[in-house]
Amino acid sequence: MRKYLHVFSISLQNVLQRRASLLMDRVGGLAAFLAIYFFWSAVLGSKDAFLGYSRAQMLTYVLAMNLLRAFVFTGRGWELVNEISSGKISSYLLRPISYIGYTLSLDMAQKTVHLVSAVLEVAVLVYLVGAPVYVPQRAETWLLFAAATAASSLIFFLLEFMVSSLAFWTSQSGGPLFCFELFLQFAAGTFFPIDVLPAGLQAALRMTPFPYLVFFPINIFLERVSRGEAAKLLLIQGCWLAAIFLATRLVWARGLKSYAAEGG
């Protein structure tokens, strides 16, 4: 465990040192955040509620979305694809450290910094435009939300890891990862909550793990689900996490095997 903490702290310093690229990342993310915020603000117009969301809930959905994008959707997929394509991955595999654990420590450092920055962005926007913020009424909501967010960021990490591992088979696996990331943004309810979709499509999405990444955690935060329902969602999320963990391990192991068979 200590060595992973060490990786975490080193890479935290590293992320902070490369302030320029961090800044670029955040500026880029900020554009989408602002666009979506003003979009929903325009949809609401002078209405007090939309689709069962109160004005404050709807706009808080977007604010929370910015936090979750920072904390959930920052993986190391592209680095992994590059390391596999360039063969650099071999040097990690020789070290006495689990690659998944190593990558996760790196990712955690990245997430920490992005989350801090995202909180600041939200605070500044709220201050500037006087956005109404929905604050949970029940104390335990914070706990449930934190648990859901932690699980969702692990699910994303594993899913991205799995898709990136496809690079073991295809020489140019950036394609699948690109496709997956874009699909996920919509299927998870990042820009638009999935309940605006027609009932059939919505029902189909609810059967997948994707809404557990953004849509359900935010709904827990906005207290649009009861305590009991929230617990049920967390349970299902936990099951998804376990299933995806096993699937990722399987794909990773297979990938390594085919990698070794080809001699790198």
């Binding site: 295809t170 696996s173 950036g174 394609g175 690109f178």
Partner: peptide, 10 residues
């Protein structure tokens, strides 16, 4: 090949 298809689909 496959990679390009992924980008297109995305």
């Amino acid at each position: 090949g496959v990679g390009a298809a992924g980008f297109l689909l995305g």
